[in-house]
């Protein structure tokens, strides 16, 4: 077992087979630097719990194809990314810091999927972006590729 400590001083025990999906921790273990508790100063306990949940579920990913558990894993992934923007960004930051490639891919893809077909107005509201372009500058960008701003698929709702 490997002990991880969040930045709010909470400790979590994780199986080595699960935690080595993190390249960063795998390297630490290989270099003999993971003898006691591994402090993770960039990750709070709420986010670390989510990451550990993912690592534990994906522990036997190589075996999933053989045992037909791929659908189960896919369903888990879909449920896993069902979270708000802020939480998703926290997990992306943690996955990047811990260097967990699959988790990074999953979360970045989810973020990209949420932005697809959204109108500019909707994205500004979803991500709390302040528009600091002048009306002229904005119009110039639209005139540069007006076809990109048109289409029945463009969704103006915020969710």
């Amino acid at each position: 077992m490997v002990k991880l400590k969040s930045n709010d001083d909470k400790e979590f025990e994780v199986e080595e087979a699960a935690v080595i999906q993190s390249e960063m921790i795998k390297n630490m273990i290989e270099d003999g630097c993971a003898t006691s508790v591994i402090p993770l100063p960039n990750i709070d306990s709420k986010t670390l719990i989510k990451v550990i949940e993912y690592l534990n579920k994906h522990i036997n990913m190589g075996k999933a194809a053989e045992t037909g558990e791929e659908d189960d894993l896919k369903e888990f992934d879909e449920q896993f990314v069902n979270m708000g923007w802020e939480e998703l960004f926290d997990v992306i930051m943690a996955a990047n810091y811990l260097n967990i490639h699959e988790l990074m891919e999953l979360c970045c893809q989810s973020a990209a999927d949420r932005l697809k077909n959204k109108s500019v107005r909707a994205v500004r509201e979803m991500l709390k972006i302040t528009n600091d372009l002048t009306e002229e500058e904005e119009q110039e960008i639209i005139n540069d590729a007006p076809w990109a701003f048109e289409g029945p698929e463009i969704d103006d709702t915020v969710n």
Binding site: I92, C108, Q109, A111, A112, L115, K116, N117, S119, V120, V123, R124, I129, T130, N131, D132, L133, E138, I141, I142, D144, A145, A148, F149
Partner: peptide, 17 residues
């Protein structure tokens, strides 16, 4: 994240800020 989006969305999102 943005590298996962097709060009059409990126052309639009240039006008976000």
């Amino acid at each position: 994240i943005l590298l996962k989006l097709p060009m059409k969305y990126l052309l639009q999102f240039r006008s976000l800020s």
